[in-house]
């Protein structure tokens, strides 16, 4: 048998309630492979509330604490304080929240957790809309995307506003570690988690989590769509370690954004001009990221 490229230990069980091909499920699987069993996970309202299965079953082999939608950052701080007081200093506390629960309703508690330097990990799995409630736009929905609240018809063209740059918001808090991860690159994902685990203080992951029903593609394409997100520079992979940027995957020449967009029904209405606009935005963001990396 070939050597496994990511840890064999599974702390996420089968029998969970995720849709077929769910990216958010792979995010949890890889995260726990990197963190190991001395981990406590706290989860607000999000797809994972359901994926983790109804009472009396649970999909994780580590403790999971449900918390309020907007309060994941505070829940991490509470668990950390209790763990330290109760002699559980070796335990990793991780908050696992969706993009709506993080970049929208949970932003305040996240900011608080980062500012007060809670020793814990916050992971935002980004499926780019309120998927658990049925694909309503969030602050993390990209420009141009169809959602149920940004319809595409003769009067409208999907979401009009650009995606909120959560990593820039995180970076403004100067955490010791922040990184983007993508389910199409599990080795990179787990390596970053293992690296973060060894660091103390607030740490953040922005994880891309493609969603077959919400992004309107067929379930077998999850990895392909995710891979294209990075290889078109739509979702670059990088770390920010103590303020220093480092891009962890660079292609000589990125693929055209069109290749990513055309895999998903949520972008199928976009015309050439709209695609060109998105390409220009992606190019500008990439250029900015290279410049940030150059500051090191």
């Amino acid at each position: 048998m070939a050597r496994l490229t990511i840890p064999a230990q599974e702390l996420m069980r089968s029998g969970h309630s995720a849709c077929p091909g769910c990216g958010a499920t792979l995010v949890m699987r890889y995260l726990l492979k990197g963190l190991g069993e001395r981990t406590i996970v706290t989860v607000p309202a999000c797809c994972w509330t359901v994926i983790a299965t109804p009472f009396p079953t649970t999909a994780l082999d580590v403790p999971m604490l449900d918390c309020a939608f907007e309060a994941t950052g505070a829940s991490i701080s509470g668990l950390r304080a209790a763990a330290d007081q109760l002699g559980l200093k070796d335990v990793t506390i991780v908050g696992f929240a969706g993009d709506g629960g993080t970049a929208d309703i949970g932003l305040q508690a996240l900011s608080g957790m980062l500012e007060r330097r809670t020793d814990g990990i916050y992971l935002m799995y980004d499926n780019e809309a309120y998927m658990n409630t049925g694909v309503q736009r969030s602050g993390a929905t990209p420009e141009g995307a169809w959602t149920t609240t940004t319809p595409v018809d003769e009067f409208s063209r999907g979401k009009l506003e650009p995606k909120k740059d959560i990593m820039a918001i995180i970076a403004a808090h100067n955490p010791p570690y922040a990184a983007t991860v993508n389910v199409a690159f599990p080795e990179d994902f787990v390596k970053k988690v293992e690296k973060a685990k060894a660091i103390h203080g607030p740490r953040f992951f922005h994880a891309l989590a493609p969603c077959p029903p919400g992004w309107r593609y067929s379930s077998e394409k999850t990895i392909e769509v995710a891979r294209l997100a990075t290889d078109t520079n739509v979702f670059p992979l990088y770390e920010i370690v103590d303020g220093v940027y480092h891009i962890t995957r660079k292609l000589g020449v990125a693929k055209p954004v069109r290749e990513y967009l055309q895999t998903q029904g949520r972008f199928s209405h976009l015309d050439d001009a709209e695609v060109a606009k998105i390409q220009a935005q992606v190019d500008a963001r990439w250029k900015r990221l290279l410049a940030l990396e150059g500051l090191a």
Binding site: T42, L65, C67, A74, G78, A82, A109, S111
Partner: peptide
């Protein structure tokens, strides 16, 4: 541990989460 939170909502969530692990809060 005195957690200086950024809102009362977070104050109560932090107490609940700490209590869930067995702390007196």
């Amino acid at each position: 541990e005195y957690i200086k939170v950024e809102s009362e909502h977070s104050a109560m969530q932090a107490c609940i989460s700490a209590s869930a692990l067995g702390a007196r809060t």
